[in-house]
Structures are given as C-alpha cells and as structure tokens.
Design a protein around this nucleic acid. Structure first.
Lengths: 245, 245
DNA sequence: CGTAGTCTATTGTCTGACAACCTGATCTAT
DNA sequence: ATAGATCAGGTTGTCAGACAATAGACTACG
C-alpha cells in the first residue's frame, strides 16, 4: 500500500472542490476582477481537464458563497463586492477580545431590551428552563455552556423577530469560539459561574417584569461581568449604563 | 408579452434553488432529523420531478452551507448541528421585510450611539464626504446607493471597533439585497431620496456633536422613514424613541 | 466463529443533447 | 438615416443515461 493511499484517508479527492478552490484562489488573487466575466463552463472544463458537470458544481458552490453570480444566456461573473463574504470572529490584535465583548454587549443589550417589550409567558418559561438546566449543570460540575447558549437564544426568540433570532444564533456560534479562546487564556474565569448565574437571573427578572431599561442594564452588567471574569475591562461608553441614572 | 414575463423579472425560476429551499425547509422543520440519512438522489429526483443534476446542485448548495454532508457510496446525511450555519436575509413570510427593518434599526441605532461617543475628525470627514457624493448623485439623477452604503459604513468605522465594522459590512450586503426587493415591490420609495438625505444630515450632526442619545434618535427616525418609504410601518417598541422624552 | 470475497446500493464523474435565454448583428419599415 | 423587429450564435440551465469509486451488507468457506 503506497503512502499516497494513506494520505488520501484524510484528503479524499473531490474534483469539484479542487476546481472551486482554484477558482476562488484566482478570484481572491485578482486574476478575475470584480464584475468581470469568467470563462465559459466549456472552457473551464477543458482548462481543468474535467467534465462540465464538475465545473458546474464548483461554480454552484462559489455561487452559494456569493462570490460569483450567473446569468443564463450571458455567462458567469465575479460578484461586484467580493469582500469578506463570510463573517467570522477571530480575535486578532491587542484589542481583539475587548472588541468582541463590546460587540456582544451592544447586540445583547438591544436584544434584551426588545425582549422585555415583547416576551410572553412561553418565552419566559423557556428562559427559566434554560437557567434551571444550568443550575443542574452547576451542581453536577458538568458543562453548562449549552444551557447558557439556550438562555441567550431564548431571549432572542422572545423578540419574535426571526432575523434577530438567526443573527443571535449566528453570533452565538462565533462567540462560543472566542469563549473557548478566552478560557484557555484565563481559566480562572470559568471558576465563578455562580456569579454569572446570578446575573442571568437578574436579566431574566428584568425581562419577565417587562422593564426594557432594566433589561438593557442587566445585559450590560452581565456582559461586563463576563468580560471581567476573563480579565477584560469594558469601557463605560457603550451606552445603557446611564439608563438607570 | 404576457404579464407572467414581467413577474419573472424579480422571480426567475431556478429549479435547483426551489429544490434546495424545499430541502432546507424540511430539515429546519425536522422532517429529516440531525444525523439522519436523506433519501437518495434518485428518489429525490423522482419526488421533485426533476433530473438528478438539479438535485445534485441543490445538495451541493446545502453542503456548502454546512447543512448536510455526503459520503460517496453511503449517502447524504443531515449535519449534526443543522442550525442556520449561514446568516442569510431573505425576506420570507408576511413580516419578512418588517422584521429586517427592525433588525437594521436596532443595529444601526446602537452603532450610531457608540459612533457619537468615539468619532474623531477623520471619521466625520468620511461621513460628510459620503453624503456630499450622495448630493452629487442626487443632482445628477444617478445611483447614489454606493455612497449611501459608504455613509453607513463610515458610521460603523467611527466606533473604532473592527468587529462592529465587519458586522456592518456583512449586514450591509444582506440589506442591499432586501433593498432591491423592496424597490421592485414599491418603486415610489426611491422617488424621495432627498428626504432620506435630510435624515442623513441630521444623523451626521448628532454624531458630530457627540450626542449619543440624539444619534440613536436620528438613526431611528431615518430607519423609520426608510421603512415608510417602502410602505412599512415600524412598531414603536424598538426603543430609542423614548430617549428624547 | 471469523474472515475473505462478492454483491448491491449510493454518490462522483463523464458524455451528449436540448431548452431557455442573452447579446449583438442584420434587416426592414418609416 | 433611425428606430424597431428579426435572426444567429453563444452561454447557462436542465435532462437522460452510463460508468467509476466507494461503503455496507451478505455469503461462502475455512
């Protein structure tokens, strides 16, 4: 058995993926300028030595990513704006984590405020359930991060706006990534989840009471606390803190 | 030319898109549980009454989105975590556009508030430049949407938070999509860009003056105006409107 | 009981063809 | 001569059928 076979174990050949990767590289490299027309599928197939079906799948993938768009009868074109089409949060630079916490604070405070105005009994029940599962996790010393996510998603769901919920889901995934990073940098922060849980209940109470200002404030307190637990001091100019004054 | 042709202008039929949308709906609805095996391409093709090539393209798209994964010789399976891994804004349902405007209002108001606290002279100059280019576009009856985007991005940049800026860029692209859809549904909205421009200058003034509450308020007024111009009445519970009281 | 070989089902790829559509050139009528 | 209609070629979208590559199950044999 040649070594090549072994290497293929974790690198199974997918022609369409190779083609789409090559095309993406050419676009990012600027070989095909934004708005320019790509070679025809026929030409691309001959260029890469594959069938037109493979080229079509590769193009379909790039089309799904928003990098190119096709017009029947006309051709395929590089998207006008091939900037960062994917939104990923990778903490980079001195203020990376700080800026991520700022963003999260802004979003969650606004979401909490709206949730306080629109929540119904079912929404509150979902939040309370998540927190109780987190209590159980706390008592059993097991992982409660999933219940934590569920709590924040329940708040977003309480806005009764599908796009707010989807943005919260999207950002939640990105944040859980940075949360892991913050955790390895400062494991101490994970030792005081009970403090976070108190803040969670304060936030729940404000939303349940239908007090938008208090909900916004509680979200700020929680996020500020979460930031401090990983050694970050949030600036005071994010708004919301002055609401209670 | 039949009316049907006109309606197709903003609803071109794409079989693969219909199939992928239907499959995605079924997955989100839970018809296919996470980790479960999908019907074979052959079966799906017969079910939808299309060719296998169409089904393959639909699957390729969902695969690119991370919703499903395929194994040659085995089958296609729903991803273990079939939440919306990608964040797309496609207005769907009765309140689609309304909810999108709500989200945009929440984000932009918060961003404007922070920008009012952190902007420096360069930031203000960038905003003013974008608005002046929009004035020129207005006078020449040409497209000013790019300058519009630049203005909103300049506000996001004034927060001096890289992630806020990137989120604004990301959402801006998604919004420009829905803006086109809103435009074909209600072209009248584009006939009063001067009104929007006045709101822009009010927003700029508030940010330049360093007045966070006024900036938040101005952002709300602007977004409410933009929504009204396409025939949407935003609810009054989004916050911000009570700041001035 | 276990193992190797076989067999079948499924996805990946190829080929060829036709349909739908766009673009530009040509033609025609005013 | 100009504007609109018509036509031809090219491009993407879709279809149909076939074979290759792979995975899983089944069977026969030791």
């Amino acid at each position: 058995m040649p070594l090549e076979t072994l290497s293929r174990i974790h690198r199974p050949p997918r022609l369409s993926e190779e083609v789409s990767a090559e095309l993406e590289a050419r676009i990012q490299r600027g070989d095909y300028a934004p708005g320019a027309q790509l070679p025809t599928e026929k030409v691309l197939a001959e260029t890469f030595g594959v069938s037109r079906a493979v080229v079509r799948e590769a193009i379909a993938r790039l089309k799904a990513d928003g990098l190119i768009e096709t017009r029947q009868g006309s051709g395929a074109f590089v998207a006008a704006n091939p900037k960062s089409l994917n939104f990923r949060l990778a903490p980079s630079g001195e203020d990376g984590l700080l800026h991520i916490f700022e963003l999260r604070t802004m979003i969650e405070a606004t979401v909490a405020e709206l949730a306080a105005r629109r929540r119904n009994d079912d929404d509150i029940a979902a939040m309370r359930d998540a927190l109780q599962r987190m209590d159980a996790a706390l008592a059993g010393e097991i992982d409660g991060s999933e219940a934590d996510d569920d709590f924040h998603l329940a708040i977003a769901a309480a806005t009764h706006n599908q796009y707010v919920l989807r943005l919260a889901e999207f950002l939640g995934r990105q944040f859980s990534e940075s949360r892991r990073i913050a955790w390895v940098d400062n494991p101490r922060g994970m030792e005081s989840p009970r403090e976070a849980q108190r803040e969670h209940y304060a936030l729940l109470d404000a939303i349940a009471a239908g007090n938008p200002a208090a909900a916004r404030q509680a979200a700020h307190v929680h996020l500020r606390g979460a930031a401090e637990r990983v050694g970050i001091d949030l600036p005071t100019d994010l708004g919301g803190n002055s609401v209670g004054k």
